[in-house]
Design a protein around this nucleic acid. Structure first.
Lengths: 147, 147
DNA sequence: TTATAATTAATTGAGCTCAATTAAATGTAT
DNA sequence: ATACATTTAATTGAGCTCAATTAATTATAA
C-alpha cells in the first residue's frame, strides 16, 4: 500500500469537501419548488424565520441563519419588494432595523408547506441517518457560536 | 404540546439548513490558513485535484468537484494567473481544455500539507462522528450523480 | 458632561454559484 | 457527404457570501 504525508490533501480524505458539495446539491434540489414561489433558498430560510417570529431584528435574523448584514440587507430588501415583509427602523434604538411579516408573507406559508416532504424524498436518507446527520451538524454549528 | 401542519417549516426541523450553515462555517475555518497561501477555498479544492491528477480536463474536474464550467473557468484562470496551473486546449479534441499542474503548483502542496490537521482540530468531531458524517454525505452525493 | 468605546445596519468590492445561452467541434444517422 | 444532434468550454447576468469599512446611535467611563 502506498502512503505519503500528502495523503491528507487527497479530496477523498476530506470531510469538508463532501460537506460543501452536499450542501450545494441539496440546496439545488429545492430550486424547482422555490421557483414556483419565485424565491431563492436564502429567501426561503429567511421566510421560515419570519413565519415563526412574525417580527425580528436584522441582527437576530442573521444570528439564526449564520449570515451577516451584508447578506441579510439585500435579501430583506428583495423580500420587501415582493411584499412578504416590511422593514422598519426601531424608534427605541435607532441603530436597529426589524423585519415584519405581512399578510402576503403569511399567505406564502400555505404554498410552501409541501416543500420539505418533497425534498426529503429526493435526498433519500433513512430516519436514523437523518438524525445522526442532524446531531453532527448542530455539533459543528455549536462550536462556531462559541468562538 | 402544540402541533401544526406548519411545523415542517420550522428552521429547527430542517436538515438542509444546518447542512448549508455548517458547510459555510467550516469553509470559513479554512480562510486564515488559505489566506497565507493567497488562495480561496474553491481554488484549494481545485488544487487538491491537480496535486493528484497533474493533468485533467475542465469537464472531469467539474465532475469531481460538482461544479460547472461557469465556476471552473474563472477559478482555473485565476490559478493560471497565480502560476499554479496552465490551461491548454486539446489538439485531439478541440472542444476540450485541460489544466496542467506547474512546478510552482506542485511546490504549493508543501505549504498546504498542514492545513487539514489544523482545521480538523477546530471542527472538533470524534473519529466516529467524522466517519458517520463522511458516509452520510457521500450517500447524499451519490444520489445526486444518478439524478 | 464629555470623550471614548461598542453596537447596528448598510455599503462596497472580490469571488463564487448557477441557469441559460453561445459558438465551435465532434459524433451519428440517413 | 450532409443534416442533425451532442458535447465542451466560455460567457452572461442574477443573486449570494464574506471581509472590511462607514455612519449613525447608544453605552460607558472619566
Amino acid at each position: 500500500m502506498s502512503n505519503s504525508k500528502y495523503d491528507v490533501l487527497k479530496l477523498e480524505n476530506q470531510l469538508c469537501f463532501p460537506l460543501y458539495a452536499a450542501a450545494r446539491e441539496v440546496v439545488k434540489r429545492y430550486r424547482p419548488y422555490l421557483d414556483e414561489l419565485d424565491i431563492t433558498y436564502t429567501q426561503y430560510i429567511t421566510m421560515m424565520v419570519m413565519w415563526e417570529e412574525k417580527e425580528i431584528t436584522v441582527k437576530a435574523l442573521g444570528e439564526k441563519l449564520f449570515l451577516d448584514s451584508g447578506t441579510m440587507t439585500p435579501v430583506l430588501k428583495s423580500l420587501e419588494a415582493k411584499g412578504y415583509v416590511v422593514r422598519k427602523r426601531s424608534t427605541t434604538d435607532e441603530r436597529s432595523v426589524s423585519a415584519f411579516l405581512t399578510d402576503s408573507g403569511e399567505a406564502l406559508k400555505e404554498k410552501a408547506v409541501d416543500i420539505p416532504a418533497k425534498v426529503a424524498g429526493c435526498v433519500g436518507l433513512t430516519a436514523e441517518e437523518g438524525l445522526q446527520l442532524y446531531k453532527i451538524l448542530y455539533k459543528i454549528l455549536s462550536k462556531e457560536v462559541e468562538e
